[in-house]
């Protein structure tokens, strides 16, 4: 991200991990941290889409408060001292990763995005080298009815990036979530096969924002699928320019 531009918007100064930083008051702690090259791990967040605060990996501490806050949706405040890497946070993040890996069937060795996967690289970065929770091994479908793309629910982490990009950027709202709790599932239209969707524009944005191998292009074999995300910041900045 570019440094804070000169605007009329009030700027807040505060600390992240002891470092003095500043950010516009409408920015999130995550945006401020990334602008200052401080890394906070995320999975559901994607710059250019709305934030939902769902994966809970970006939880940070604010000194003086016992409550953890998701950096992606928490606005900066004057004088706060943010801690992004305490022992407790590191432990929680690793556990969250373990939970995600235990939930469905994440087998890197046979995955189209092996080597290009955000879930895989985040797990590595967080030092998650084994999963202590029993694998739940759900029986899930692969929907390959679409002419160009397919979804393998076994690899979905329910980050809802596909739902948001389809609704907010492509404005087709083909994707949504059905069911609840551990039985949640992303669906196309009213849970029809993707290939029969009347709303899908076949733009492929969902495939490219998907952090894992859940959404992929047909014809790609193991480790062949690398996602292209450049379109998103480009589209968002063009739209903002048009509004202004």
């Amino acid at each position: 991200m570019s440094p804070v531009p000169i605007t009329a918007e009030p700027v807040k100064t505060f600390k992240i991990d002891g470092q003095d930083v500043s950010a516009r008051e409408t920015e999130s702690i995550l945006q401020a941290a990334r602008a200052h090259n401080i890394d906070i791990p995320t999975l559901c967040h994607l710059e250019g889409l709305s934030s939902t605060g769902a994966c809970r990996l970006c939880m940070v501490e604010i000194k003086g408060s016992n409550k953890l806050l998701p950096a992606c949706v928490t606005r900066v405040q004057e004088g706060i001292e943010v801690v992004t890497n305490s022992e407790r946070l590191v432990k929680y993040r690793r556990m969250i990763m373990e939970l995600i890996f235990s939930e469905r069937n994440h087998v890197c060795a046979v995955c189209v995005v092996n080597g290009h996967c955000e879930l895989q690289s985040t797990a590595q970065k967080l030092g998650m080298d084994h999963v202590r929770y029993p694998y739940l091994n759900p029986q899930l479908d692969v929907d390959a009815s679409h002419e160009r793309f397919a979804i393998d629910h076994n690899r979905c982490i329910l980050c809802t990036r596909c739902v948001r990009v389809c609704d907010e950027i492509e404005t087709a709202h083909t994707w949504d979530v059905m069911g609840r709790g551990i039985g949640s599932k992303v669906i196309t239209d009213f849970n029809q096969p993707w290939g029969e969707s009347e709303t899908c524009t076949r733009c492929g944005k969902c495939v490219n924002v998907c952090p894992t191998g859940a959404l992929f292009e047909k014809g790609k074999s193991v480790a062949e699928m690398a996602k292209q995300r450049q379109f998103l910041p480009y589209l968002v900045s063009r739209r903002e320019a048009m509004i202004e």
Binding site: T52, G53, A54, C55, R56, I96, L99, I100, S102, E103, Y133, P134, L136, I157, L158, V177, G179, R180, G181, I182, G183, S184
Partner: peptide
Amino acid sequence: SCGKCVPCRVGTAQ
């Protein structure tokens, strides 16, 4: 659990 956040969705199941 609505299934939105990971700790509640997977944590309660585990």
